[in-house]
Design a protein around this nucleic acid. Structure first.
Lengths: 148, 148
DNA sequence: TCCATTCAGGACCGAAATTGTACTATTTAG
DNA sequence: CTAAATAGTACAATTTCGGTCCTGAATGGA
């Protein structure tokens, strides 16, 4: 179905919550409540996000997480990459030499191009856009693909 | 890693082979040889493609498959949809009501927008583009996302 | 008519990834 | 020193994916 994993989906929700609370640190428990998810799940994905440098953590009492950068500077592509690794539609789009068919594979170049297009689409949406979440928004998020 | 399944990947290769052989019917065995894949695998995905109406089949001696439409009229999106179902990055992008978080989920609308962008990117590449497979192509396949 | 060829439609199994949870260690504020 | 909270790791259950095989139906030729 060509979809991101649930954990990635949850990550966007949690990051959105984090972006909305302002700059103060927020504990995993509070985020779990806000996102209506289980604490262990939220905890798990926050660790991954911290490891990728998208959030910073503070341990100890009154610890928690906050965005490492302004919401405008974090894209959906960043979140997806943090949770799932490099974005590539096929194995050979991300890691060359893993396929064995490459020498006589005419579609490889095109998949790389497609992957790049999708990467661009994901980079074009920032966390700030996600927070805005307009019922209807006139200008729209810049997500149109160039017509041809 | 946000990728299509191997079977989908194989499907694009087989479809490309089919587009290159011209209009005569080609047996699954010939396609398997051309794509360097196992016959059962090729057979399986061709059935799916036939079911989706992308290829037509002829049974019996000298039977085989051929494209149901000109290569220009078949997009990568068609192939992905045939193999994996509707393109949606999250569960709620494809089927509403399956999530339970929808009432208080601010990111849903944005995921739908992102999914649409990816759908467009995949629709922008036809099988004819895949066949062209240029070592380097000046104009390039129309895959740029509108800058903003 | 009979037979070889080739697709149609399932059924099946093993491998791998995903999900969700749990447990222990480490850090920090008071 | 203690309670709060993250870091890191491990694990079982579930689901999906990849690949194979088998039986049935259609087609063309001997």
């Amino acid at each position: 179905m060509l979809r991101v994993s649930k954990l990635t989906d949850y990550a966007t929700v949690v990051m959105t919550c984090l972006a909305m609370t302002g700059a103060e640190v927020t504990s995993a428990q509070q985020l779990a409540d806000a996102a209506r998810l289980e604490l262990p799940t939220v905890s798990k994905l926050l660790k991954q996000l911290a490891h990728a440098g998208l959030v910073t953590s503070r341990r100890g009492v009154n610890g928690g997480y906050c965005l490492a950068r302004p919401a405008e500077a974090i894209s959906v592509a960043d979140i997806v990459t943090a949770m799932e690794g490099p974005i590539g539609m096929t194995e050979c789009s991300a890691h060359a030499g893993a396929c064995g068919h490459e020498p006589h594979c005419g579609v490889r170049v095109n998949w790389q191009r497609i992957s790049q297009a999708i990467r661009s689409a994901l980079q074009g949406v920032s966390l700030a856009d996600m927070v805005a979440t307009p019922p209807r928004r006139p200008a729209g998020i810049p997500l149109r693909v160039a017509s041809h």
